[in-house]
Design a protein around this nucleic acid. Structure first.
Length: 684
DNA sequence: AGCACGCCGACT
DNA sequence: GTCGGCGTGCTC
């Protein structure tokens, strides 16, 4: 009897760090066109319900005696092919271990959302969101010339009218499987499996794109910071063409959809049907098609956002992460890992991968990779700032004079981008009688005033409140203080009704990456230095330097931090000056990348600092942890968020990371939510 | 996560 | 006496 089963390890989408063991009946694998089990989706029972999981390993049948729990059977294998490759399963396992991100959740959120089936217990059925096993379409456009039964005629007319549909859609609206089948047999309907497209046509590059020699398709990690994003994209065309010419595939990742779409417009006419796009907002059918084509075929190019890193692309030879410093490459939710690190793992694992980390203002970590000799410069080592000719004007900041100053500075300018990292209309609403600010009920921080529509909004949890004129305690009229971009925009439009002025809070992570303006005004980036974050100087530097790259004639910087190294490197037109200084500083202070940080955030409704201290002490004692570098429990930068108190601990270079899983379990038992952030991007 | 169990307070 | 709120435990 034993021989009729295969024992497999399955990662299920629940917040635990382990995988579970299931039995798979051999007969269920007999008709599979691909015998590989690892990377497959499986439908499994889990406690009193069912879930979709991913096979991560195949065990020896003799292991069965080792388990002291009842082993349940896999109910079904829903797909003809695995969705992840063995290689990606291996790497994602390692990465989840490194970031202490539950493997089941990592694989679950990595796959196309339409494959994340949910079992609805009350309805006793699976919810297959937008799922289609194969598409049904037709090549005819009129039904008149065919003699068909009434129902078949209706079906054919329906398919003609919608163009492309699915088996599920058709049965859902009332066509029987027999009707569908007979039209398929007559050749009037065609079905195409999305999972399995044949490797057919020989792709020809458009005339004007010629393979470029092989000098840039070498194995290696490269830092590409010597040119602007427009210019970089032009260079990728040659690399992609090279890769396709060799029958291999490329992946270019962008930090946001707006930038991605601009890149698509540029690349589509060049690479036509060899170009695929992948991002969360894509239609589920398209996502599945892109996923499986990239997994099964070769000689393609994909551009996408964060989620595209999960596609197990066949013969990947070029990986580019654009604007690699962006915060969007590490999510604040599961899977809590940094895709740059995944790129690094892919690079280590593949024989020939060109891995490019590109940014006009790269992250300190990536510059450090270059310092250590792990990454090389892509193209010549030239400072981008030296090629920018726009004039730098530095002015001091004073809140009461800002309107007058802008009026004076902008009087002879046009085509202006104005940046101020202040959301909303004004910063606070204040009662001068009670001397209190109007604050968010859930976060206890001042609400910002917004207009269009007029409302109050919490800058942290985004809860919206009705605008009030009078104080809720004494009825006195409330006053507004501070300014935001909405107020700046309104007032500048009043002063200069004919000028082209765009007002934004930030450039980074907006579609502005490709845009240029004659004059860029940057108001008070000093705000980035207010937070005692280890990355504060880097953020300030980027906030000062990045807008300069977008200006063609004038760059007006309004700041009171003239002595900061970030501004010095701008004036000296040398980004290297900043990185050298910053690396020295971080080394002295034992900050990343010299020490690895693990940020522990504890959250709870009635949580007190002493509870966290007790929990941490108990953990240290229980596991006899002596060798640990941390500076105690402190209040988080936002100590009260969404009705929860928040405390943090920073561990430096903590080696026994697996023990944090136990801390996580202990915290859960005490109703404390613990968020473990390995190599945090920011501390907030 | 998502479900069940079990202990309390509020209700017919 | 029992309905349901949510704290706690567990998933191969």
């Amino acid at each position: 009897m034993k021989d009729d089963y295969i024992i497999v390890e399955v990662a299920v989408p629940i917040p635990v760090f382990e995988t579970y063991i299931y039995r798979l009946k051999k007969s269920k694998t007999e008709n599979l066109p691909d015998k590989e089990l690892i990377g497959r989706r499986v439908l499994v029972p889990l406690k009193k319900t069912k879930t979709v999981g991913i096979i991560t390993d195949v065990k020896e049948i003799s292991d069965i005696d080792k388990f002291d729990f009842e082993i349940k059977d896999i109910e079904e294998i829903p797909d003809r092919y695995p969705i992840y490759s063995k290689e990606y399963i291996e790497l994602l396992k390692e990465l989840s271990e490194f970031y202490l991100s539950p493997i089941g959740l990592t694989l679950y959120y990595g796959m196309p959302d339409s494959l994340r089936w949910k079992y609805i217990k009350s309805k006793n059925r699976w919810e297959k969101i937008g799922f289609n096993n194969y598409i049904i379409y037709t090549t005819v456009n009129i039904t008149d010339s065919y003699k068909l039964p009434k129902r078949q005629k209706e079906l054919l007319e329906y398919v003609i009218s919608v163009g492309e549909t699915s088996y599920e859609d058709l049965t859902e609206i009332g066509f029987s499987p027999i009707t569908i089948k007979s039209l398929i047999n007559k050749g009037l309907l065609k079905k195409e499996n999305l999972y399995f497209l044949e490797e057919t046509e020989q792709f020809r590059l458009k005339q004007n794109i010629k393979p470029f020699g092989k000098e840039f398709l070498k194995k290696g990690i490269f830092l590409y910071s010597s040119e602007r994003i427009e210019k970089r994209l032009e260079n990728y065309v040659n690399l992609i063409a090279n890769s396709i010419y060799e029958g291999k595939s490329s992946l270019i990742i962008f930090p946001n959809v707006a930038t991605l779409k601009k890149a698509y417009k540029f690349l589509k006419p060049i690479f036509e049907d060899k170009l695929y796009i992948y991002f969360d907002g894509l239609k589920s059918k398209e996502k599945i098609k892109t996923w499986f084509n990239l997994k099964n075929l070769s000689g393609l190019v994909c551009i996408g956002t964060f989620s595209s890193i999960f596609i197990p692309i066949k013969n990947l030879s070029l990986l580019v992460i654009e604007e690699e410093h962006s915060n969007s490459y590490k999510l604040m939710r599961v899977p809590r890992f940094d895709i740059r690190n995944f790129g690094y793992k892919l690079y280590k694992n593949k024989k020939n991968l060109t891995f490019i980390l590109a940014s006009s203002t790269p992250s300190v970590e990536t510059v450090y990779l270059k310092e250590k000799g792990l990454a090389k410069s892509f193209k010549e080592n030239r400072d981008l700032l030296k090629s920018i000719k726009s004039k730098i004007i530095i002015e001091s900041f004073n809140y009461s004079e800002i309107d007058e100053k802008l009026k004076y500075l902008l009087k002879d300018k046009d085509n202006i981008l104005l940046l101020a990292n202040r959301k909303g209309y004004s910063s606070i609403l204040y009662c001068e009688v009670c001397q209190t600010e109007i604050t968010c009920e859930r976060c206890d921080i001042p609400l910002k005033v917004h207009i269009n529509p007029k409302r109050l909004e919490c800058p942290l949890c985004n809860t919206k409140y009705e605008f009030i004129n009078n104080c809720i305690h004494c009825g006195n009229r409330l006053s507004q203080f501070g300014f935001g971009v909405e107020k700046l925009e309104r007032e500048l439009k009043k002063i200069f009704p004919d000028k082209r002025i765009r007002v934004e809070t930030t450039i980074i992570d907006k579609e502005l990456l490709f845009d240029k303006y004659e004059t860029v005004v940057n108001i008070f980036p000093d705000i980035f230095l207010r937070k005692a974050d280890f990355k504060a100087d880097e953020k300030f530097f980027r906030a000062v330097v990045y807008p300069y790259i977008k200006s063609t004639k004038n760059y007006i910087l309004i700041t009171n931090k003239r002595e900061h190294i970030g501004i010095k490197s701008l004036i000296n037109k040398s980004i290297e000056l900043f990185y050298k200084n910053e690396l020295d500083r971080r080394k002295i202070l034992n900050y990343p990348p010299f020490k690895q940080f693990i940020l522990l955030s504890f959250e709870g409704k009635e949580l007190k600092k002493s509870h966290v201290e007790k929990l941490f002490k108990d953990w240290l004692e229980k596991f006899n942890i002596k060798d640990i570098d941390y500076e105690g429990v402190f209040f988080a930068y936002y100590p009260y968020l969404r009705e929860k108190f928040r405390y943090q601990i920073i561990l430096k270079d903590f080696k026994e990371k697996f023990l944090l899983k136990e801390l996580f379990n202990m915290a859960t038992k005490r109703a404390i939510k613990l968020i473990i952030d390995v190599s945090p991007k920011e501390i907030k």
